[in-house]
Design a protein around this nucleic acid. Structure first.
Lengths: 113, 113
DNA sequence: CGCTTAATTCGACATCTCTCGAAATGTCGT
DNA sequence: ACGACATTTCGAGAGATGTCGAATTAAGCG
């Protein structure tokens, strides 16, 4: 990961609403959440949320796909892993995690069914 | 770590010059670097650098102490660990590193003597 | 096609951020 | 105390970011 990409990703997460959105998407796992559902859950006006989703998307931290009339957003786990990797390699002493567990979707949500 | 602290830390790192400063301080290990040395190494005017150092300091990511006429800055490793911990816990699936290695100073710089 | 729902884009505004020279502050050597 | 050095604070301007209602685009249903 290049430092410009890291800066984009850090900047995308460095905002109250966007961090909340990203956390929510991580919690919702692979199935993700529709924009409207996010807006209601977080109490953010649709147009404001749309702005923040675009920022997260440009930073590569989230992905979206259309399902019927809704746009479903979900966390891009590999991107988050790359950010964590960048930070541990470049901003720590290079003594990070050597297991490859890292950043994976929260499966427990899905397997509850 | 609270999410407000995480946002401060993320915001502090989400800037070209500040990320460069922090990386430089990580590289320089426990001994740190003086503000002037940083300014010269990174080609940033003193007053601009001072502004960025203040941001990093307010975010808790760096520490400083006076040595003779210079102010020596150094990375606050525990703060960086806390940020990494926050991100792996809240923005990943809670399957982070379970070893406690994490973020430690780059000792190889010092032990070269 | 026309209607409804879902979401984005536009536009205008307020606010925060970054930059950097000049002035002020703090520290040391003599 | 004075001069020189290291750094910060001040101040003003340019530019980026966040907000959100209104208008627009897109998808599905009858």
């Amino acid at each position: 990961m290049k430092s410009t990409a890291a800066i984009s990703a850090l900047g995308a997460l460095a905002q109250e609403h966007r961090l909340a959105v990203f956390r929510k998407l991580v919690q919702s796992g692979e199935s993700g959440m529709a924009a409207g559902a996010l807006a209601e859950a977080l109490g953010i006006p649709a147009s404001s949320l749309s702005f923040h989703l675009a920022q997260l998307r440009h930073a590569g931290l989230i992905l979206h796909q259309r399902r019927h009339r809704s746009l479903i957003y979900r966390a891009n786990y590999p991107a988050m892993n790359a950010l964590l990797g960048y930070l541990t390699e470049n901003c720590c002493a290079g003594a990070p995690c050597d297991n490859d567990a890292a950043c994976v979707p929260m499966e427990q949500e899905r397997q509850s069914a």
